[in-house]
């Protein structure tokens, strides 16, 4: 599915939840359960994303020209948020990731749901994912 398609899907899921903020947050936390197991050995300082209030670890690998992200966090809501990003961006070409417009965040009204501190953290996660994509793109083009 295209990046656009996955975003449409996510927006649809959040629409079903409606305005009930408690259920929305519960849902986001549940999504964190979809994250792949994060290897203990990667839970090190150099993989921590700077700018997040909660701890977020992120790694990325390139396979057949596509990027595979792994991430984890010490808080469940953050885990849920990063699982959404991974769902949209995982197993794609660096170029797609670099140019991806992640409009689902605004369309869901995520800023209002998670508050300003976590929104800043979310922006840092996206930035780090794109930085990985730029690095792999450079490597692939070399």
């Amino acid at each position: 599915m295209s990046i656009e398609g996955v975003q449409e899907e996510i927006v649809g899921e959040f629409e079903i939840l409606g305005d009930d903020r408690e259920s929305t947050i519960f849902y986001i936390m549940e999504l964190g359960g979809n994250l792949e197991e994060f290897p203990e050995s990667e839970r090190k300082d150099e993989n921590i994303i700077k700018g997040c209030q909660s701890k977020v670890w992120l790694t990325a690998e390139e396979n057949d020209g596509k990027i595979h992200y792994l991430a984890d966090s010490n808080t469940d809501i953050t885990k849920g948020l990063i699982s959404l990003l991974i769902r949209v961006l995982n197993h794609r070409k660096p170029e797609e990731i670099i140019h991806a417009e992640l409009n689902f965040i605004d369309r869901i009204g995520m800023g209002n749901i998670i508050g300003s501190q976590r929104s800043n953290g979310l922006a840092s996660m996206i930035k780090q994912m794109k930085l990985y994509a730029i690095a792999f793109q450079t490597k692939l083009n070399a």
């Binding site: 408690e22 929305t24 947050i25 519960f26 469940d76 809501i77 998670i114 508050g115 976590r118």
Partner: peptide
Amino acid sequence: GMHPFDVGQMLDAR
């Protein structure tokens, strides 16, 4: 099993 920040955010939703 829960981070205080998550608990706070969920209580805020109420």
